[in-house]
Design a protein around this nucleic acid. Structure first.
Length: 597
RNA sequence: GCUCCUGUAGUUCAAUGGAUAGAACAAGUGUUUCCUAAACACUAGAUCCGGGUUCGAUUCCCGGCAAGAGUACCA
């Protein structure tokens, strides 16, 4: 039983015995005592005032006295207005620290054989352009949430659906065919995904020119968009692709291979991976046949032009296209097929889609469609809807060249880390190889932390003109603290100081030290909450708080120079436990921490 | 038009309905013969507006205002 549970039970006993009061709902949770007051945890007494028919202060006083007798862990208390501030005994904190220090998996619940399985889809790139900052947020969130759920005892399968077919990739293919002069990644030195992306932009440029020309000939913009030769040609190509045209398929395979090679490098640099990759080209037929089955069971209907639709007006939504008049499939078609295949392939207990909030409607519709098709799990799909990354001037637009490229940004962060390290002379004694490892850790750490510390559901702003900070509430600050602790621990080992566990739990430790133990003690519940809420930000904010407190402690207290041997050992145990929680916590964010920096 | 989301210091972000709304950056000022100054300390600065529920509202409800997204034979 943890501290909060112990106290909650005691408080419940107190109000029952003092006021014969049994709240219908759960008691309001204990909260941490604010810094400016004495105490560790606080009970708010207002909810009991009515039943007690006494003032909030009196109620606090009476519950406080009850707790003092009822439980060992409360050593004293004070009452300020309706707030009962409890001080927890130092010996309790020291015992807690011992338990934390000896637990190698502190905060982590490992999956058992029969644990439930969660499949998490993230990344899901289109193969017509390189990854950008928006994808970075998606990938980091997906990876981190997978780690967090694993730490909460789930079996996790990380999956990726590669949108490798469709009109968008035909546009790149067509542009390359028309204007490419046989360019390849080798001949240009461009990363494959960037080369293909270049032709997607070229397509758009020519397409726009054609539209302008048609408009000048008197067509409306809408008519022009539908009748421009390039788009007609791309549509023809999509049809040829779906009909297995050998030449189109060959071109498609070649260009996709370029893109995959490029993506692999980006994923590797980012430090994310997948257990199972699905390709839209391999799932869309399943989707098509499901749509046809839906038509057969009258869940969907066919229009005169041959297109197939779902009528969702009964659910308060619109009608949704599932197959085009020319028989080709759309995004939704393949998502139906992919979902079905996944449930065939794995015993999924929970399916999570990490996809931006711009697709909220899409997932609302998907769940309904699967439900109409008779899949009992359809309505249980979880759309983990995260916010967009915006630039100061608004949304990133690939066609306007305002996207922040993922490869460029990661490289830039690493180079900034390198420059900073050089300026500070931090890595002068390291080998070239060590320097490489560390600057990569720090550069990526700053980027990852910058993104993950924000509540995932909210949109966030990134200003490319201001480089991401390395000071303050940042990844490098946390990494630096870890390195500092490790440095002290190395010196302790050199000095042959033994500090495996604490014998004397009667040690007179400071408020700052007991608060650090209190923070450590919160780690498991932070991990749990992060899992329940799908929020890496909770972990990030927690680690920051822990690290900030540790740095104050480090500044104000001596560890190795402490003369009292028991106190010195205590501080080493405390520091080591903090380093360990920092490392574990950061690993849940997908961020590595260095031994030195 | 309809649907959804978001409005907190100059900026970027916090705050299960609880105490005087926290941090960081930027601004200003200090701390290094001392375990890593990528640190620590100090100063100044904010809840879009109006109602309601409540002992208590940044938080919940209603109405404005503002920004964003969705509403495609795009993905």
């Amino acid at each position: 039983m943890n501290l909060e549970q112990t106290l909650n039970i005691s408080v419940a006993k107190a109000v029952k015995s003092l006021y014969d009061f049994e709240p219908e709902t759960n008691l309001p949770a204990l909260q941490k005592t604010k810094k400016e007051f004495e105490g560790d945890l606080t009970v708010v007494t207002f909810p009991f005032v009515k039943a007690a028919r006494k003032s909030p202060e009196q109620v606090g006083q009476e519950i406080g006295e009850f707790l003092l007798k009822d439980t060992e862990v409360v050593s004293k208390f004070n009452v300020v207005k309706g707030f009962l501030n409890l001080s927890i005994s130092k010996s309790f904190w020291l015992e807690t620290l011992n338990a934390i220090h000896s637990d190698n998996d502190f905060g982590i619940t490992k999956a058992t054989e029969d644990a439930a399985l969660m499949m998490i889809e993230y990344s899901s790139p289109n193969t017509n352009k390189p990854l950008h900052l928006g994808h970075i947020r998606n990938n980091l969130l997906g990876h981190s949430i997978a780690e967090i759920q694993k730490a909460n005892g789930w079996k996790v399968v990380k999956t990726n659906i590669v949108n490798d077919r469709g009109i968008h990739i035909c546009k790149s293919m067509l542009a390359w065919k028309l204007f490419g002069n046989g360019e390849t990644p080798e001949s240009t030195g461009l990363k494959g995904d960037h080369l293909v992306g270049k032709y997607y932009v070229i397509f758009d440029k020519h397409f726009k020119a054609e539209i302008q020309e048609l408009i000048s000939k008197g067509l409306t913009e809408e008519e022009a968009k539908k009748s421009a030769p390039l788009i007609l040609e791309a549509q023809k190509m999509l049809l040829a692709w779906e009909n297995n045209d050998a030449e189109v398929r060959q071109l498609w395979e070649m260009m996709n291979a370029w893109v995959y090679a490029g993506f692999d490098k980006t994923y590797q640099q980012m430090g994310v991976s997948f257990d199972k990759i699905y390709y839209e080209s391999e799932t869309y037929l399943e989707g098509k046949s499901e749509v046809e089955r839906g038509e057969a069971i009258a869940a969907f209907y066919r229009r005169e032009d041959g297109s197939v639709w779902a009528d969702l007006t009964g659910n308060g939504l619109d009608e949704k296209l599932l197959l085009r008049a020319d028989g080709t499939s759309v995004y939704m078609t393949q998502d139906i097929g992919t979902a079905k295949l996944r449930y065939n392939d794995y015993p999924i207990n929970k399916m999570v889609y990490v996809v931006g909030n711009e697709q909220n409607y899409h997932f609302q519709v998907l769940a309904l469609l699967l439900d109409k098709l008779g899949f009992e799990w359809g309505k249980n799909l979880v759309h983990f809807s995260y916010g967009m990354v915006e630039l100061p001037e608004g949304k990133m637009k690939s066609r306007e060249g305002t996207v922040v490229d993922a490869d460029d940004l990661m490289l830039e962060m690493i180079e900034t880390a390198r420059e900073t390290s050089q300026e500070l002379g931090k890595l002068d004694n390291c080998t070239a190889e060590e320097i490489e490892t560390i600057v990569r850790m720090v550069g990526l750490g700053s980027l990852k932390y910058f993104i993950l510390k924000v509540d995932p559901r909210k949109n966030m702003t990134f200003n490319p003109k201001e480089s991401i900070d390395f000071n303050g509430n940042t990844g490098p600050f946390i990494q630096y603290t870890h390195a500092r602790i490790k440095s002290v621990l190395r010196k302790a080992v050199e000095q042959k100081i033994e500090f495996s566990s604490l014998k004397n739990i009667g040690l007179g430790i400071s408020e700052k030290e007991s608060y650090l133990i209190q923070l450590l003690n919160e780690f498991p519940s932070v991990v749990r909450q992060a899992g329940e809420e799908f929020s890496p930000a909770l972990i990030a904010n927690y680690i920051y708080e822990l690290v900030k407190e540790f740095n104050q402690f480090y500044h104000d207290f001596s560890i190795l120079k402490e003369e009292n041997q028991e106190m010195k050992q205590f501080r080493l145990v405390l520091s080591e436990s903090i380093a360990s929680v920092i490392k574990t916590g950061m690993s849940l964010l997908g961020i590595d921490v260095p031994e030195r920096m």
